[in-house]
Design a protein around this nucleic acid. Structure first.
Length: 1014
RNA sequence: GGGCGAUUAGCUCAGUUGGUUAGAGCGCUACCCUUACAAGGUAGAUGUCGCUGGUUCGAGUCCAGUUUCGCCCACCA
């Protein structure tokens, strides 16, 4: 028989099994199968870049479920794919275009840019696929999807068409962040704010027809006076007195609890508030009354009557307590405008100049207009005062110019009914979110029922399938699209045009003779296509076999930051399109942070390429580590460091060095490059991988199992399959099988309930500490005994077989290797039934062990053996007995324990180098001995001539002190009347027993001290 | 500002419905290349369970408040 290498070599195994799995179609899901289906769709990684450790975690967890269910006999589909990630990908490619060719997208043009992005996508999709495959992801690679591929496009078009038809999609106004320089809207995350010195202008708006007791003017303050041209209201708080009360109460409370040094500040705030209250409250109360009466004020310059409105947005503690409202150019005012149903007057053109709504200021820039408006206000005497003030100015990240909130036409999905349907699905349990606490965020977000703006001013994505046709009689549309059910149109009264939507394909510009059709230039929000992912990937809207077999899916595993953006939207589109939830369970896994608590990202330099970990420790080690850290926690820290490519030293990663292009190894003094290397000089250096020592554990575990497998293989000579008679089982056999059955059950249950960490800890502990450290050690003697060898072999190989199958979903490569070895040396295995195992572990049957094997009594008996063994080893260790010396010991114990332990004397010899001289209630202790006492047994080791009396006395006295401490505690507890009368009887009984045990132990220790002193 | 989570050994984390002496891995100490495995073995040291109260016979665990850290969402005329 060929000898196996002493160390497990992950790289070889990975290469081999990737190929074999692929060649044998192990991961292919067959729609025609009669097996029950089990489906997961991958959260499609963005094609913006390569995968990082977060993806490694996410995919490990999915693969574990997929592999387990495959072994459980399900027809299992894991659908892979990637996401086009609109904004992010386009921004990435544009940035590179700028850096490398100094070109903007406008210079390149739409088609040019989009083709560049496709090239980028191809290269990263390839990279991502390679990464996933090497991590062992058992996806059905023949079905790989992309959110912009034809199949997804078809689903997007059908969805848009139906939603448009059902009036779930509409055109509405939305404030966008307008970049007047690039003349495009930018997303919220592309806006940063800058603190600049500005001013705060106070101006008076005359009250229209003031009644007696009413003020003649309302004073408002603003940082942007020119926007007053678009004002459509002035707001005051509906109940100023109440707000003052509430604020005063709040700040008084803050004051009482604040640390000394913060008190003066709060006191000042309170004093100011009191002053304002005296000065402003009567006025504000009057204004609130007036607002409720629908009174008007006169907007200067424009000479337009605008209403006073009562709205919670106006805070009496700031400015004048009254706020001018410009709904078209301020996000808050926009909300007020919506609540109070105010007109929204847009005063800006797309280039940032003022439009006709600005009256005589039309054509001026914002800054010219500001100066001129202020001058006019001053001239007509309504400008009260100007204060200096620091203001936060929103800036475009792209052009570094100020952002203008700009009211524009956008497409929306109407959310009220859709949101409710998605909420209901979670409330009534059709979709279960794990851990449960994440359901709250989902429900809260959906309950706002905010309509979903789906247009993006980008070029990379699904272009909105709407064509505009101006000024065209409906008869002509009817004629042009006669007989077509795939074209619908609606009239846009505001702009006197038609919106034409077509279900598939495109419309020619001259599809309506005599008119020019223009397609909407915007693309759909990325999430619009991602929202369809579970059914679009299966071929919806076509009735494909995949859709019939594998949809709805079973499980979704993702991270918490996209519960709302993605998970919620998948639920509601699925309900709408397919009339069913897209999945039944959602598992939210922790997020990986680095040692500083920062999220991992390329831009911070702490990102880790999973393949670096795979190269160094193996894919199994990576996966083991990921499963180990997956608790219900929301974050988990994973410290990462550089590895010197020259000497292999671990180079601590710091906040400073992780953003440098090169780092010097403190050990070998060589420089290596990081991801930041740009210069040719730096790029010439070897690359230092970023890894974490946290993965050593998994690597060591692989190796441990590999060696257990070697041991089995070396001892299978003469193996014959056969059922095992219960009578031939020894205590350790029955103990092992009891544990094996328990562990298989717990492991399975934990994985099914997403307790990955618990699952792997149970299996790790069992495999290492029980199977390897005890069973394998004990079985050695029996393997040399011809009478016992057959049973020993059968149990030994069977247990490893079960461990291997259980572990396969987490560590697929090493288990396949082991499985192959087992199949070679023990082609038929089993204890209660004989099985010819599957060719590969990945398709082996999931272990289900008889529950009757679980035997508490056997386990506690075995625990006594383990304790005695530990006692003997401890004595040896503290007495420094050389490992090669055999010692003798006596064991004093009950007759019952004698019956148990005497037959195991051979194991004390082989596992602790100790020979049992006597055993039982009358065991004779040597005079000069080292002792170890437990509750119902005591070991005495003869150390004549060897004993270190000092060390022994020291140890025993320490033990005595410890015992006395416990005894005192217990006695106090048991003499506490309250405890004895109130605690349950079982607890008291347990306490009494434990006290008695402690006293017995104490007596034994005292005796051995007395002997030693003699 | 709102919501959520965390705070336990030097580090990273477990700790089920409250119940004997709070665990794991790494790291550390001592002794071992013992015939599956030095990526290993045996033994060992290390904790005021963030803080303050409360409930209870009994609190790492439950309740109230609080420190520090993190995440998500909203927002600053």
């Amino acid at each position: 028989m060929q000898e196996l290498p002493k160390q497990f070599e992950p790289q070889l195994a990975e290469e081999r099994w990737l190929k074999i799995w692929e060649e044998n179609g192990c991961f292919h899901a067959e729609p025609n199968s009669t097996k029950k289906p089990y489906t997961i769709v991958i959260p499609p990684p963005n094609v913006t870049g390569a995968l990082h450790l977060g993806h490694a975690l996410n995919n490990t967890l999915q693969d574990a479920q997929i592999r387990m269910h495959r072994m459980m006999g399900f027809e299992t589909l894991w659908m892979p794919g990637t996401d086009h990630a609109g904004i992010a990908t386009q921004a990435m490619v544009e940035k590179r275009l700028k850096e490398e060719e100094n070109l903007t997208r406008h210079e390149l043009g739409r088609e040019g840019l989009v083709s560049r992005i496709w090239a980028w996508k191809d290269s990263y999709e390839k990279r991502i696929t390679t990464q996933l495959k090497r991590m062992g992801a058992s996806c059905d690679w023949r079905r790989q999807r992309f959110t912009l591929d034809e199949r997804c496009a078809k689903a997007v078009r059908y969805t848009f068409f139906t939603f448009f038809q059902k009036d779930l999609i509409y055109r509405g106004k939305k404030l966008v962040n307008w970049d007047t320089n690039l003349q495009t809207a930018v997303s919220d995350d592309e806006v940063f704010s800058e603190t600049v010195q500005g001013h705060f202008w106070y101006m008076k708006y005359p009250v229209v027809n003031p009644k007696p007791g009413e003020p003649e003017y309302v004073t408002v303050a603003t940082t942007r006076p020119e926007t007053m041209l678009g004002d459509t209201a002035v707001a005051v708080h509906p109940n100023p007195a109440k707000i003052y009360d509430a604020l005063e109460a709040q700040w008084t409370k803050d004051l009482a609890e604040a640390p000394e040094k913060e008190k003066p500040e709060i006191e000042a705030k309170l004093a100011d508030l009191a002053k304002r209250r005296v000065e402003l409250l009567p006025l504000l109360t009057t204004l609130a009354e007036m607002a409720k009466d629908g009174r008007m004020v006169m907007l200067p310059i424009q000479n337009r009557e605008i209403p006073l409105v009562a709205d919670i947005w106006a805070k009496p503690e700031l400015g004048t307590g009254a706020v001018k409202i410009t709904p078209a150019h301020d996000p808050n005012d926009y909300e007020v405008g919506r609540r109070c149903k105010l007109p929204m007057i847009n005063i800006l053109n797309k280039d940032g100049s003022l439009n006709a709504n600005a009256g005589k200021y039309e054509g001026q820039t914002i800054y010219q207009a500001r100066e001129n408006v202020v001058a006019e206000l001053e001239q007509i005497g309504v400008l009260l005062k100007v204060e200096d003030r620091e203001i936060e100015l929103p800036m475009s990240d792209r052009s570094k110019t100020p952002i203008e909130p700009f009211l524009s036409d956008q497409w929306f999905v109407r959310m009220d009914q859709l949101s409710q349907s998605a909420m209901d699905a979670v409330i009534d349990g059709r979709v279960k979110i794990h851990p449960e606490r994440y359901a709250k965020g989902y429900l809260d977000w959906l309950s706002e029922k905010r309509d979903w703006p789906i247009g993006r001013q980008l070029w990379w994505g699904h272009q909105i399938p709407i064509w505009y046709c101006e000024d065209c009689p409906e008869e002509e549309l009817k004629a042009a699209f006669a007989g077509r059910t795939d074209v619908i149109w609606k009239h846009d009264d505001a702009n006197n045009q038609w919106w034409i939507c077509v279900q598939e394909g495109t419309l020619d510009a001259n599809a309506v003779p005599g008119h020019t059709l223009v397609q909407d230039q915007d693309v759909l929000d990325t999430w619009f296509s991602s929202a369809l992912w579970p059914h679009s990937t299966m071929g919806w809207p076509d009735a494909t076999p995949e859709l019939a077999k594998f949809y709805p899916t079973d499980l979704l595993i993702t991270s918490r930051d996209i519960i709302t953006l993605w998970v919620a939207r998948m639920v509601l589109t699925s309900l709408q399109n397919c009339n069913t939830v897209p999945f039944h369970d959602v598992f939210i896994h922790p997020k990986i942070l680095d040692k500083f608590g920062d999220t991992m990202s390329k831009s911070k330099g702490n990102g880790v390429d999973p393949l670096d970990v795979v190269d160094k420790f193996g894919a199994d080690a990576l996966r083991f580590g990921m499963a180990w850290l997956t608790t219900e926690n929301q974050d988990v820290r994973l410290p990462v460091d550089f590895e010197c490519p020259y000497c292999g030293a671990r180079v601590e990663q710091t906040r400073e060095n992780r953003v440098r292009p090169r780092v010097k190894c403190p050990k070998c003094k060589e420089y290596f490059r990081t991801q930041w290397a740009k210069s040719e000089e730096d790029l010439a250096l070897k690359r230092g991988a970023v890894i974490s020592e946290r993965f050593e554990m998994g690597r060591n575990f692989s190796n441990k199992l590999w060696n257990a497998c070697r041991f089995v293989q070396m001892n299978m000579e003469g193996y014959t399959p056969g059922l095992v008679e219960e009578s031939s089982l020894t205590l350790e056999d029955r103990w092992l099988l009891s544990r094996l059955s328990t562990v298989a059950q717990e492991f399975t249950q934990n994985l099914l309930t997403f307790k990955y960490s618990d699952a792997i800890r149970v299996l790790y502990g069992f495999a290492w500490d029980e199977y390897c450290s005890f069973y394998v050690e004990m079985v050695k003697a029996r393997l040399n005994n011809p009478d016992q060898r057959a049973t020993a072999q059968r149990v030994l190989v069977y247990a490893l077989d079960v461990i291997t199958r259980l572990l396969h979903p987490i560590m697929p490569y090493v288990t396949e290797e082991i499985w192959a070895v087992l199949n070679d040396c023990a082609p038929v295995r089993g204890i209660v039934d004989q099985q010819t195992p599957a060719q590969f572990a990945c398709v082996a049957q999931w272990p289900e062990l008889p529950k009757e094997w679980q035997n508490g009594e056997v386990e506690s008996q075995f625990a006594v053996f383990q304790d005695v063994l530990r006692g003997i080893r401890e004595i040896r260790s503290r007495q420094n007995v050389p490992p090669k010396n055999t010692v003798q010991f006596a064991l004093k114990c009950t007759a019952e324990l004698k019956g148990l332990l005497e037959p195991m004397s051979a194991y004390f010899a082989s596992m602790a180098g100790a020979e049992m001289t006597s055993c039982g209630p009358d065991a004779q202790f040597p005079d000069l001995a080292s002792n170890y006492a437990a509750a119902d047994w005591e070991v005495s080791m003869d150390l004549t001539g060897l004993i270190d009396i000092e060390a022994e006395l020291k140890k025993q006295e320490k033990e005595l002190a410890k015992l006395e401490g416990f005894i005192k505690g217990k006695q106090a507890k048991l003499s506490n009347e309250a405890f004895v009368s109130k605690a349950p009887a079982t607890v008291i009984e347990k306490e009494k027993q434990s006290l008695q045990d402690l006293i017995d132990q104490k007596t034994a220790v005292e005796q051995s001290i007395a002997k030693l002193k003699k």
